Simulated scan of single mutants.
Amino acid sequence: MALPPEDLRDKIAPSILSADFARLGEEIRAIEKAGADMIHFDVMDGHFVPNLSIGIPVLESVRKVTRLPLDAHLMISEPARYVEAFVKAGANSISVHCEVCPDIPAMAKRIHDLGARASIGINPETDADRVLPFADQLDMILVMSVHPGFGGQEFIPAALDKLRYIRRELKRRGLSIDVEIDGGVKLDNIAEVKAAGANVFVSGSGIFGKPDYSKIVGEMRELIAQTPAKI
């Protein structure tokens, strides 16, 4: 689903997986005040990825304390069973992984029918061509730049080539959809990621835990604003 040109803007999406969960409401209000564009909400099932994380009750609680769009990233083996529950809980966008999604058009349609934006994620070892044939039915493609399952990992440089390839192909097909990057995105590499074609930047430990969220988000925004895509 192509976006109007004015909506294909750069967006910073702090990942609350790295937030202080003892102060989650305060953390969310702080990143909202800092100028974040959306909140990235990582869901892990201990099966598709080797870890467990937050789920529907936490998303419902987060929805009550912010007006920011909630980007639910379902790193789970059976996403079709849960997409409706996450949308009802307040998710504005649902990302499911192509590795566990045999029918991407059907999944995109279901998410759209529920009133949410549809996104498909691609793990580091998965070829982008697994998703690109269906890009005209999506609102976003999510490129993993770490192996999903744990926060705080180092950025995988090969993700830059994948970003460039995806953005070139989207441009060739005349499609304006978001390209999201998730994993190891920080102040020291966000410009490289922007230059490679991403426009939605998920950052967990690159934001949370820093002494001044407004300062770090502002610096990230300045870097991406100064960096044209080079594809």
Rank of each mutant, 00 (worst) to 15 (best):
L3Y: 14
E6T: 12
E6W: 15
D7C: 06
L8A: 13
K11A: 05
S15W: 09
S15Y: 09
S15P: 06
S18M: 09
A19N: 01
F21S: 05
L24I: 14
E26N: 04
I28S: 00
I28Y: 01
A30Q: 04
I31C: 11
I31T: 11
A34Y: 05
G35V: 09
G35R: 07
A36N: 09
D37I: 06
I39W: 01
D42G: 06
D45V: 07
H47M: 11
P50Y: 14
P50K: 14
N51R: 06
V58S: 04
V58A: 07
L59M: 10
E60T: 13
V62G: 00
R63F: 10
R67T: 15
P69M: 09
P69E: 08
S77P: 01
S77I: 15
S77Q: 13
E78Y: 04
E78F: 02
A80S: 14
R81D: 09
Y82S: 08
V83S: 00
F86S: 03
V87K: 09
V87W: 05
V87Y: 02
N92W: 08
N92V: 12
N92A: 12
S93F: 04
S93G: 00
I94H: 02
S95A: 08
H97P: 02
E99L: 12
V100L: 06
C101E: 13
C101K: 01
D103T: 07
P105K: 04
K109W: 06
K109H: 10
R110F: 03
H112Q: 02
H112S: 01
D113F: 00
D113R: 10
L114F: 05
R117S: 07
I122L: 10
N123E: 14
P124W: 05
P124E: 07
E125D: 12
T126W: 07
A128P: 00
A128S: 15
L132P: 04
P133G: 08
D139E: 11
L142R: 10
S145R: 09
V146S: 03
H147N: 15
H147I: 15
P148A: 10
G149T: 09
E154Q: 11
P157K: 12
P157Q: 10
P157R: 13
A159S: 15
D161S: 11
R164G: 14
I166S: 03
E169N: 10
E169I: 09
L170N: 04
L170F: 04
R172N: 13
R172C: 03
R173C: 01
G174K: 08
L175P: 06
S176F: 11
V185I: 12
K186V: 14
E192K: 15
E192H: 09
G197F: 02
G197K: 06
A198K: 09
N199W: 05
F201Q: 05
V202L: 10
S205Y: 02
S205F: 00
G206I: 08
G206R: 06
F208Q: 05
F208V: 12
G209R: 07
K210A: 02
K215R: 15
K215S: 13
I216D: 04
I216W: 02
V217S: 03
V217G: 00
R221C: 05
L223K: 15
I224R: 01
I224L: 03
Q226S: 14
T227S: 02
T227N: 06
P228K: 14
A229I: 15
I231N: 04
